[in-house]
Amino acid sequence: MKRETLARWTLGVLLAGAAVFPLAAYGLARRDVVEIHGRMAEAGGWTPAALTATVDQPLHLRLVADDVVHGFAVGGTDWPAIDLFPGRPVETALTFDHPGRYTFYCTRWCGLNHWRMRGVIEVTGPGAAAAPAGPPLYVQLGLDLDAPRPAPAAPLPERRPSASRGAALAVELPTLIEPRGKSPAAIWQSIRAQAANAPFNDAELWDAVAWLWRSQTTPTALAEGERLYAANCAACHGGAGGGDGVFAPELAHPAEHTQLEAGHQTQPPTAFTDPAGMLGVSPALLHGKLIRGGMGTGMPAWGPIYTDAQTWALVDYLWTFQFDYTDNP
């Protein structure tokens, strides 16, 4: 009987250890850390998706991807994105300087509804929230983002307009108070109408427009725009801007794809390489589309995520699909 008692005690200790160890470890680990689980949007997205934090007090997070690779980043900050591999939890701490409403989002193309993986962190505490920069340019200019866009009034360029060729010409360019409010076609028309530009052919005037556009931006902004485009836009619009990203077929035929909610409207992504579509729109309109999103098209709203400088950098980069900014075209 002594043997039996010893066996019972041994088994009891072993089973108790097996039961208590994980429970204790989970209990201790979860005490002061918020655990956020990331799943594809159709499976629930981020859980929890609403957090609160206090200014200057670290918010401890444990990030866990439950299904596929996700990424975690907080909009409006320059904190680098964190890649989350399934089952390899990452711990991080966020300390906010200013109160406000911050959006966190997925940075990996985890599925057709990837961009829906968003959550908010309400940060309260002393200090003023970052002051809004005033209404966006498209509102100031009274642009209707959803109005049908007519074809550009100018003849489309027969060759790819080159900024460096344009710089070499002495084309008389208009002085614009807000150059970002006009489309390239509108600018082309106004310089075509100037008598001083009569010696230049149409293609040369397009080169001049390309030069004007490049002079509005900087290599740093273009590099930032390129990075953001590759990370967030290429999935739908394609790496080369042709509207042929990996999700484009699904967006063109939403009814055939069960991943999309019933009745959810999408359209094929815009091809930035199409001159007829791009040369008639202004940077302000692109900026507006970016921050507000395209109603009923499937285009996400990036306003809560990008800083204003990032949004403009991205708009600037989009024109490289039309204009050649290299020095030796």
Partner: peptide
């Protein structure tokens, strides 16, 4: 043999718990 079996049973109990409460991703559970 009994000790090996009892150890494996404890491991089994541990495994079931992690299956139920551990990471949801199969390749990490």
């Amino acid at each position: 043999q009994w000790l090996a079996q009892a150890g494996l049973l404890a491991g089994f109990a541990f495994t079931i718990q992690i299956g139920l409460f551990g990471p949801a991703a199969g390749n990490a559970n």
